[in-house]
Design a protein around this nucleic acid. Sequence first.
DNA 1: TGGGATTATATGGGCGTCAATGGGATATAT
DNA 2: ATATATCCCATTGACGCCCATATAATCCCA
Lengths: 154, 154
Amino acid sequence: MELFVSTFINKIDKKGRISLPSIFRNALPKDYKNEIILYKSLRHNSIEGCSVKRINEIANRINNLDFFSEDQDDFSTSIFSEIIPTNLDKEGRFVIPDTLKKFTNITSEATFIGQGYYFQILEPRKAKQKQTESRKRLILEKKSLTSILNEKRK
Amino acid sequence: MELFVSTFINKIDKKGRISLPSIFRNALPKDYKNEIILYKSLRHNSIEGCSVKRINEIANRINNLDFFSEDQDDFSTSIFSEIIPTNLDKEGRFVIPDTLKKFTNITSEATFIGQGYYFQILEPRKAKQKQTESRKRLILEKKSLTSILNEKRK
DNA sequence: TGGGATTATATGGGCGTCAATGGGATATAT
DNA sequence: ATATATCCCATTGACGCCCATATAATCCCA
């Protein structure tokens, strides 16, 4: 599977459209090129996005939870009701819904951050900040990629 | 199968009609596009809705329960006696029955919440509240979410 | 390997279509 | 008749489709 990698800053036009970075479009699975899924991150005030294919896989697992459980209801509400299927136009652009703009403070431009199987969309200043902090934290904790990869698998 | 996803707030007109959101209409199975099933939620003061096809499938499962069991009787009663078959007009609108309006406190507008195989209809403020609470609970239990979503595929 | 030629990407904007909503007219039932 | 259910048509705003352009990236060949 292709991964979402690297960072891009794109502009929002008068109609509210913004281009999904080209290499992110290429990372979308075949047969799922024209639609992405947006949702609020559970961690920060950022938007997360992924392919429809990935959401389908997650959806199946949720639907297999016990039918009448509280969990099932919470999960379905948070996941199914808060995901926003979003179409790309022929040029690879999409509209960021108002609710998500408010949630993230995005106005005239936005930063796309590749996260592997998904990506994040942030207000550019916050994006910069987040990247700096993530890096600091890793260095402070002396975590290297090598050490993480060598950890016992769960 | 298509799922009911995302959230929409629509208005009820003078005649009591409300539009089923377009993407919910698209999520209805072929051959079952003009009719939906409404019933009271067993969990909250909300309406739940789904396709006729889904009800048929549930009916089959109930029929397979032990004929003399309590469960069979409870399910038959609460499901079959309380479901309300509802037709959509050419524009995709339907009328919310008075009993259900009272049950949910819905007056001039209603929120549709996608829940995967079914959807919920709530008074907008309550909908907002429910989503906020589900989200909080989910963030608290993020570990379990992560584990569920990353579980080995079956 | 340098540099013009070609292509791709991000962005701008016109326009037609569709969804949500409103309301009149007709038919059916209580 | 009064209320309810359909059908039909109208309006409005949002969105998708199409075409255009400038800048950036890539190619290709002398």
